[in-house]
Nucleic acid binder design. Structure first.
Lengths: 254, 254
DNA sequence: AAACCTAGCTTTGTCGGACAAACAGATAAG
DNA sequence: CTTATCTGTTTGTCCGACAAAGCTAGGTTT
């Protein structure tokens, strides 16, 4: 272990990977800033001294990784990886691992409570205004499960944003993407479900305004418990997310 | 909105993207199971009726997304996306977004507490044995900050695993990847830091064994508070993760 | 002079074909 | 039965080509 090696580890990565790595390094260490152009494929060909097909494979890797994107005219530029895209991939991974709604629920409870605590502490006037607008719109569509579910998801995104904690925002996203689509099924299946949802949101928003952490946590827990009770009426918490979605997708299609 | 459209939205995605999507669909809905071969590039060329370069671009997308991989002989096969790879991407995104250690600390506190609660409730004998082995090894290297930091990270991974909640395991990973590398700096910089760390782990493990949630949470909080106190001696919580790492990387290199 | 249009250049997406290196499987040698 | 060799496959890379879409500059219209 302590002997100094005679030879350096030789690099056997394929060329397209090296192209991707080279560009990634420039972005990560800030020499290329988000929004700045990377150059045309032809220029990259010239710089790296490899074929255009090879460069293109490298580009696809970075594009999928979210580090570069093509602007309106398809020119390459560096970009800040959007959480959302990454979160989508994670959600997909969760589905493939056949996680259960119990796992999803438990984790979401933890993360939503943390969100509301952060929001109570640090929400700005803008955050509160956004939440209020969302609440208004929710109240207006209380009888429409599809719209209400969408606004519910947005409410929780706004709450995480109000916590001013980007790590938390990111951490909750994958679970939320799987969790909140079920709201539609539940609100649609439980009478008074919509009204209870809006009422919970209203109490949560009030708590954030009043900087009342206790109340915020209390109503967030109630809100999620409501979800859980509703969910258990239509499915089992211990079935995998994949199967449950599959069944409901079929049911909706018939 | 209610009028039925005359034409279906025409599909203008590039061919390599459609190739990727087509393969992805087969994997997601289970027609190709993890571990099963996708076929050779030549076969895909024949099936999709596009050029090999196009197929290869599509393959790169899926490979980067973690949905397919190449086995030892470079043949394509479907695979379960490894959390770890995705988590690494997320960590990178966090760095680029210049999150602060305060955000990281807050979220980690939430998630580690949730982990220990889950572990206290549901840890199996195997989980406990793994944690015990880790603790033993930690005690043996208490004076070596680098090794101890690595074992500390592993301890927390094992704790999350013991919670039996894969969503939680996934959610904590990106933050943990950024959070725990700092342990080395801290343990190295604070006398008795290593001993306190091992002691905290021991109490946490005891709590898990005794199914004592209060104690588990208490010692987990203390453990992380220790980290925080140590961190504040060497850096500011409100600086970005990127900058702090940069500085310490430079400092270590000199 | 300002707005508009058109032709030409650039860039991307795709294609066909090619070849060396690595590899798997079959076959021959010990 | 093991080891070495041979042979077709497969991947990684390269070359050259072309159509479509976007950009640019110059000329045209109002």
């Amino acid at each position: 272990m302590a002997t100094t090696p005679l030879f350096r580890r030789i690099d056997v990565a394929p060329a397209y990977q090296k192209v991707a790595d080279a560009i990634e390094r420039e972005i990560i260490n800030g020499r290329i800033k988000p929004g700045e152009p990377i150059g045309t494929e032809q220029q990259l060909v010239a710089q790296f001294g490899v074929n255009r097909s090879t460069v293109r494979e490298g580009i696809r890797v970075l594009e999928e990784g979210g580090l570069i994107r093509r602007d309106s005219s398809r020119r390459l530029q560096a970009c800040l990886p959007r959480y959302n895209k990454l979160a989508t991939r994670l959600s997909r991974a969760l589905i493939l691992h056949e996680v259960t709604f119990r796992e999803l629920f438990e984790t979401s409870m933890t993360l939503e409570v943390a969100s509301v605590e952060g929001a109570v502490e640090r929400a700005t006037d803008d955050n509160i205004a956004e939440l209020a607008r969302n609440l208004e719109r929710s109240a207006a569509v209380v009888g429409n499960p599809a719209d209400l579910a969408e606004l519910d998801a947005e409410f929780h995104v706004l709450m995480a944003k109000a916590s001013q904690n980007r790590v938390l925002q990111l951490a909750r996203e994958p679970a939320a993407q799987l969790f909140f689509p079920t709201t539609e099924m539940i609100v649609g299946g439980v009478p008074e479900g919509g009204a209870r949802l809006v009422e919970a949101h209203r109490h949560i928003l009030d708590a954030i305004k009043e900087r009342d952490k206790e109340a915020g946590v209390l109503w967030t827990r109630r809100h999620l418990q409501d979800w859980r009770r509703g969910f258990e009426k239509i499915a089992s918490l211990d079935r995998s997310v994949e199967h449950t979605y599959m069944e409901h997708a079929y049911a909706a299609r018939q």
